[in-house]
Amino acid sequence: MASKINKPKLIHDGKRLDGRGPDELREIKIEAGILKNANGSAYLEWGKNRIIAAVYGPKEVMPKHFADPNAAIIKCRYSMAPFSSLEEHGRSGQNRRAVEISKVIKEVFENVVVLNEYPNSEIDIFMEVLQSDGSTRAACINAAAVALASAGIPMKDMVYGVSVGKVDGEICVDVDMLEDNYSDADMPLAISHRDDRILLLQMDGDMSNEEIGRGFDMAVEAGKKIRELQREALLAMYKGV
């Protein structure tokens, strides 16, 4: 988080710096099935975020001793490319932040993928942030969910990711990088589409219980829009086949 000393005013007359209202998402584009080798894949543009997700599997577990005789295991890698941020050259590979994010995203998909359909096998989910502009973990979850569906992997529910933040004291959905740097709080979420189950929840900053509740409401509203975009991306993959 940047120093609060030079904090710009982020909301003018109820509008955020990029013209959005508090409950508005940035522009989102999703394309499914963009990689040849992977069993499933998706490309996602979310504001200035650019993300590719790929899914391999179900396939043989490597190394073999990780295999579970009752269910598939999921491996998950969230990673930011060294050229992805506006700042300096980032280090490639998994830093501690990426390890933690990979872990919590893995737990999201362990919840919804029907793992016991594929004992002794593994499903790999790779998410690469090519360009980052805030809320990248939420964006990655949306791309990975589409990639999994495009791979034909059975899931008991589709999921979406979205972040909620407290910007200039106001609860807003989908915080971008600038807002995140100066926000009072940030709450990334992953939620199941059908019955609003919370699959990923992180938060830091300061929020009252009432503000958290308002954040959930906004996230669920946003989820309805994301659901449509995910659906359209999957349908478009089969058009012209």
Partner: peptide, 8 residues
């Protein structure tokens, strides 16, 4: 107020 949360 709440300062941080983490679901696992």
């Amino acid at each position: 107020v709440v300062r941080a949360m983490q679901k696992g």
